[in-house]
Amino acid sequence: MSGCCMCTVVKRLLFGLGVGPTIVELDHLASGAPDIQAVLFHLLQESSSSSSSEGGGVPAVFVGGKYLGGIETLMACHINGSLVPLLKDAGALWL
C-alpha cells in the first residue's frame, strides 16, 4: 500500500541495498487488489515465522519468486546477515 509506513521501510531498505524491486501497490491497482490481498493474507497465515500483527499481509516480500515474509522476517534477515546472500542467490543483487 502506498501509504503504509512499513511498506515504505521495506522499499527504502531494498533500494538502499541496491536492489531494484518490483513493487505492486494494491491501492493503485484498478482491479484484483482484494484477491491479491486475500492471497497475501493466506500466505501470512501459513507462514510459521510471521505474527498476526502484520496487517492484511502487507508488506509482503518475495525474493526470487518465493515468499519470504513480511517486514519482521525481512528485518530479521537483514540483521542476522542472511538478506544480502539471499538477494545475491536470487540474482537481485550483484555486489
Results as ranks from 00 to 15, higher is better:
I23H: 10
C77L: 11
K66T: 11
C4R: 03
A76F: 04
Q37V: 09
R12G: 11
P21H: 05
L93C: 10
L87E: 00
V39S: 14
S49K: 13
Q37E: 13
S82L: 05
M75F: 02
L43Y: 05
L26C: 08
S31E: 14
P21Q: 06
D35G: 11
V61G: 05
G64H: 05
A76Q: 09
V24K: 12
E54C: 10
W94S: 15
I79N: 10
C7Q: 04
G57A: 08
T22R: 13
L74A: 03
S49E: 11
N80I: 00
G91K: 01
P34C: 03
G81R: 00
F41A: 15
G20V: 14
L93S: 07
S2L: 05
N80L: 03
V58F: 07
L95Q: 15
P59T: 04
L83Q: 00
G18A: 09
T8I: 14
G70H: 01
G91S: 04
L95Y: 14
H28P: 00
C77Y: 09
E54P: 01
C5L: 14
S53T: 13
Y67W: 09
S47T: 06
C4F: 05
H28W: 05
M1Y: 12
K88I: 08
S52P: 07
L68E: 01
E72L: 05
H78M: 02
G65E: 02
M75W: 01
M75A: 04
C7D: 01
S49W: 08
G20I: 13
F62G: 03
H28L: 12
C77E: 07
K88F: 06
D27R: 00
L86Q: 09
G70C: 05
V19I: 08
I79D: 13
K11H: 12
T73V: 14
L40D: 09
D35P: 01
G3T: 14
G64F: 03
V10M: 08
A76Y: 07
S48A: 14
P59G: 04
S2W: 08
G57Q: 02
F15S: 14
M1W: 10
G65T: 03
A92T: 07
Q37N: 10
F41D: 15
N80C: 08
G91A: 07
V39D: 12
V39Y: 12
Q45M: 12
G16Y: 05
F15T: 14
L86W: 04
I79G: 08
G32I: 06
V39R: 15
I79R: 11
A38P: 06
G70R: 04
D89L: 12
N80G: 00
H42Y: 11
S51W: 07
V63D: 01
P34R: 03
L95P: 15
S51K: 11
Y67M: 07
H42G: 11
Q45L: 14
G65Q: 02
L93K: 06
C5I: 15
A38N: 09
G91T: 07
S2C: 03
L68T: 05
M6S: 12
G70Y: 03
C5P: 13
V10E: 02
A90W: 03
E46C: 04
S51G: 13
M6F: 13
V24A: 12
